[in-house]
Design a protein around this nucleic acid. Structure first.
Lengths: 121, 121
DNA sequence: TTATTATATGAACATATATTCATATGTATA
DNA sequence: TATACATATGAATATATGTTCATATAATAA
């Protein structure tokens, strides 16, 4: 009798040791994985990392951010929108100017922990 | 005397309130921002989120991961390489099969905290 | 050696993403 | 009202990224 690829592998690499069905059942759902990924993705760009880091120091208007980051107003604005979409930052309007600040304590925690982590290795 | 764009804005949106030069001086460097971004970027894809989540349950060989994730071997292998590059996972070879496991306690912490965080909002 | 199995990897392709440009929107001021 | 200013946004473009396909590598067994 022919063995299928799966049968063969289950014998060798895991079959007897792991209950794949059980692990598969416990695995995070695709939609949840997407949500989590989108959240981390927001921190996965150097411009946005800088924005978060800057706003950790102080609330700032868009123009200030363009000065601090040395980037175009449009680019900064686009990234702020993305960060707003995942609720990492919020805005406060005063006349013509819009002040941005962090809107998620969790981000500050994670961010600080990760900075420390990456420094120490 | 003409006012430049900057002069004008400094008066209105921040000039008197924030010392931009000081904030700029404290801002994370571009290379550090890139490192941090790359680290978070590794968690910014649903497939890799699933891999991390699965390995949190148990060490597993590549073939097991393909079964649990219901994905092609090549795709899984490529993503594992990426996770290895940022040292989130490590491998252990036994004969033909390669067992992967988490290689970063920090990842587990961050990951768990974020799952909780996203569930609660 | 030859065949089989487990994993890795380069190339190709499709999709996603970041920045720029031009312009729109909203607000204050002359 | 007309003008200037601060920010937002759609379109375009270049680059990055994820998956697939074909194949390479490494280890084992026949």
């Amino acid at each position: 009798m022919e063995k299928t690829l799966n049968d063969a592998c289950e014998e060798t690499c895991s079959g007897s040791e792991l209950d794949l069905a059980k692990i598969k059942g416990k695995l995070i759902s695709s939609t949840a994985a997407l949500e989590v990924a989108d959240w981390f993705k927001a921190l996965g760009d150097p411009t946005r990392v800088k924005i978060i880091h800057a706003l950790q120091q102080s609330e700032m208007c868009v123009h200030d951010l363009t000065q601090v980051l040395e980037m175009g107003q449009s680019a900064v604005s686009h990234q702020l929108r993305l960060l707003r979409n995942v609720r990492m930052v919020k805005r406060r309007k005063v006349g013509k100017t819009v002040y941005y600040s962090l809107d998620d304590n969790h981000v500050e925690e994670i961010f600080g922990q990760t900075l420390q982590h990456l420094k120490h290795e």
